[in-house]
Design a protein around this nucleic acid. Structure first.
Lengths: 242, 242
DNA sequence: CAGGAACAAAATGTCAGACAATAAAATGTA
DNA sequence: TACATTTTATTGTCTGACATTTTGTTCCTG
């Protein structure tokens, strides 16, 4: 483990980087045990608290896990799809909330990505995916639903659509795009009329997916995008007036 | 700042989560200063090293930055697009390298996503984007190029294509997909013949983008996907034999 | 009165050493 | 052999200290 990184102080960051490199470059493999904190402290010629800070940085990125006890220590962790989803969603959500990204831009990105799986999903969707989508459509038609529950159901519906493409890498990439939109979507209050429209489009999407008609899925996703945008714009206009 | 999180030991993780929640839920805004480490230690009733470990976790996620000196401290950090790119790429790369994702699956995901920006890119590409793409195509045609440089140029070319869509959220989402593929692509040795084929397809893509023909862009991306896959499969076959 | 030098203060960065908690392995005992 | 106990290695946490960096203030001098 070398120490070639920049000398711009903050030892714990340098050590974290050195270990990270070792993992990323494959010099340490999954489930391999790192030297104990005391040994690392010796190797890097720093104190144990400093090593610990470095290890916490890596733990925050799900790169290692630690275990107490005699055979314990820090181990290189296999980054699971779930961990990756989680990090994607956190990052995407923060990015959107901290950079006043316009609704239009976020919406455009989301639907562009979703359309990217229309073809694959049409070819590979299982009865399971269709059942999830139908169930969510049914939920969305119920009268007593709060706006938040409606949005949550919307997310589940679209996640099912994305997962239907049967490509976990694609699902991972899109999880952030879909979920990060939820806080923005939650600002919209859905009238009975607009919910009806959305449910209609969702139904058409599910039907087209069922029939394996990719173009039809894409077309309706496009309509949904346009409609969502118009809802948001109406809301903006109303807000400006009051 | 509450402390409602689970009691499953590891105080520094709990504290990090509490602060993270405060930031994500907007109770702390960008550039706001956190209490000093000593104050946090008091508030959470732990020692300063424990607080520090928590802060390092947050720093690892680019959620805070720290500054020394009299008016120093930890500040909520604005997550920039660049930070987000970086995290996306790190996560995607690790996910692919640690979960023996097949080349086919990764490749499919990548090109599906890239096709998602074909329409937008055709409508919005600037002369700048086209110039970058042409320049990289030219580089790719040069004889002395190493395989690694060829791949790097390929990444730059595709990044330009993605950026041409003019949607930063989209660019951010796709950065990971494109860059994370590079280590996989680097395993392929490109013959003069295959480079020629790729350059031809790249040229067609750039031409179609120039002319604003979205379908043509998509079609050629699809051909490129098919061709890349065939190269990888040939390689596999050759490897199995030897 | 102005300007700079010296100093004080506040904060993070680092260190050393200790003890607590945990979990596995080694050991002793029925 | 099976079970209880002790040992041991390791992470988790605490205390207190010092180093370093940056800012603000004081005070001396021109």
């Amino acid at each position: 483990m070398k120490n070639n990184v920049d000398r711009s102080s903050d030892l714990s960051a340098q050590i974290a980087q050195a270990i990270r490199d070792a993992i990323v470059e494959g010099r340490m493999i999954v489930d391999e045990r790192l030297p104990s904190e005391a040994e690392l402290a010796d190797q890097f010629k720093v104190s144990r608290p400093t090593v610990r800070e470095a290890l916490k940085r890596l733990a925050a990125q799900s790169l290692i896990r630690t275990q107490r006890g005699a055979t314990g220590g820090a181990f290189v962790r296999r980054l699971s799809y779930e961990d990756a989803y989680g990090q994607q969603i956190t990052t995407s959500t923060l990015l959107l909330s901290m950079n006043d990204v316009s609704f239009d831009v976020a919406c455009e990105a989301r639907y562009a990505l979703e359309r990217a799986c229309a073809a694959l999903a049409s070819a590979r969707r299982t009865p399971d995916h269709l059942a999830t989508m139908r169930a969510e459509i049914h939920r969305q038609g119920q009268p007593g639903l709060t706006d938040e529950s409606f949005c949550a159901s919307d997310v589940t519906f679209h996640r099912a659509l994305v997962d239907a493409a049967g490509n976990p890498v694609l699902s991972y990439q899109l999880a952030g795009a879909v979920e990060a939109m939820q806080p923005l979507m939650n600002m919209i209050t859905f009238t009975a009329r607009s919910r009806e429209e959305i449910v209609t489009l969702h139904t058409r999407i599910a039907d087209a997916l069922d029939a394996g008609q990719a173009e039809e899925v894409e077309a309706n996703l496009h309509k949904l995008e346009t409609y969502t945008l118009s809802l948001a714009h109406d809301l903006m206009k109303a807000r400006r007036k009051s």
